[in-house]
Amino acid sequence: MSAESGRPGLLERILHPEGRPRVVGVYPSVEACLQAIRQANAAGFTKLVAHSPIPSREIEEAMQKRPGVIRYFTLVGGIIGGAGGFTLATLASFLWNQNTGGKPIVSVPPFLIITFECTILLAGISTLLGFLLSSRLPQPRLSPAYRERFGEDSFGVGVVCAEAEAGKAEQALRQAGAEEVFRVEG
């Protein structure tokens, strides 16, 4: 947060473009977490952040997650890798122009093996890159809305809202059976 203007800094805006949760409810189970998401939605809050110690398809569906961009990274990486692998083998064979066993200088079947390996290599690396970028990792510091128990045995639902709406959000989260509701400063 920039001290003078009160506006979030550049890094903050990149890592959290939709803003940080202002009110967070803590829940003991997946069902309770789902109930909190529904309750917050019903109260008119659409910008939510759920924390979970486990991968949960139900939470993803409740949060209406759409397919991300990772698949494009994988596809483009694979195409670049495959084209690069074949080009490497071809150009290197022209540069070191040696007849091996009467095979053509550009020997397609053996070069396809290099092409395949490079396709997988670049697709894998670009998938990693796509994963990191789209999940906004690495995060230089943990969110003030995060609690260590979210990595162990509790679920959290954070509501991104204006200060004026914090009371309403808190009420919605409590109605869903929160064990604890806390406000995030800053």
């Binding site: 924390h51 991968p55 993803e60 997650k65 991300g68 990772i70 999940s135 995060y146």
Partner: peptide
Amino acid sequence: GWQGTDREWHRFGT
């Protein structure tokens, strides 16, 4: 900086 957010888990699964 993993925090188990819905976004992280979703991308993780993909």
